[in-house]
Simulated scan of single mutants.
Amino acid sequence: MDIAFLGLGGMGTAMARNLVEHGHTVVAWNRSPEPAKALSALGVGIGETPAETVKHCEIAITMLADDGAVEAVSLGENGIIAGLAKGATHISMSTISVALSERLAEAHAGQSQNYATAPVFGRPDAAEAGKLFIAVAGEAGVVEKIRPALEAMGQRIFIMGEKPSQANLVKLTGNFLITGVIESLAEAFALTTKGGIETAKVYELLTETLFAAPVYKTYGSIIRDGSFSPPGFKLLLGLKDNRLLQQAGEKLETPLPFAAIIRDRFLAALAHGDGDLDWSAIAKRAVDDAGL
Rank of each mutant, 00 (worst) to 15 (best):
L267D: 10
T53G: 01
S165Q: 03
T25N: 14
Q155C: 11
A269V: 08
L150R: 00
D125R: 15
F5I: 05
N114S: 11
P119A: 06
K240V: 05
G196K: 05
A38D: 12
C57T: 09
T179R: 10
L42S: 13
A259S: 13
A127N: 03
A60W: 00
T49C: 04
K201D: 13
I146Q: 04
E102T: 08
L256R: 07
P148Q: 05
L206Q: 06
P33C: 07
L39R: 01
E102F: 09
A140Q: 11
G12M: 07
R123C: 07
A186E: 00
D289Y: 15
E71H: 14
A127M: 04
D2L: 13
D288Y: 12
G195P: 03
H22A: 15
R17F: 05
Q247E: 15
A149D: 01
S32R: 12
A36I: 02
D66N: 11
G76M: 13
K171L: 08
E71I: 10
G130H: 05
G47E: 03
G180A: 15
I134R: 00
V73C: 02
G23V: 14
A107L: 06
V202Q: 02
V142L: 01
A213L: 12
A212T: 12
F158T: 09
A212S: 12
F211P: 01
N168K: 02
T209M: 04
G161A: 07
P231Y: 06
T209K: 09
K240E: 03
A69N: 08
R263Q: 14
G9W: 05
D125P: 06
T89W: 00
V120Y: 04
L150T: 00
G273Y: 14
A137S: 09
L236R: 10
D125F: 08
I46G: 04
I46T: 11
T25Q: 15
D241V: 04
I46L: 14
T95G: 07
A41R: 14
P33H: 07
E144V: 01
A212V: 12
N78D: 14
L252V: 15
M160I: 09
A137Q: 02
I261G: 06
S94C: 04
N30G: 08
N78C: 10
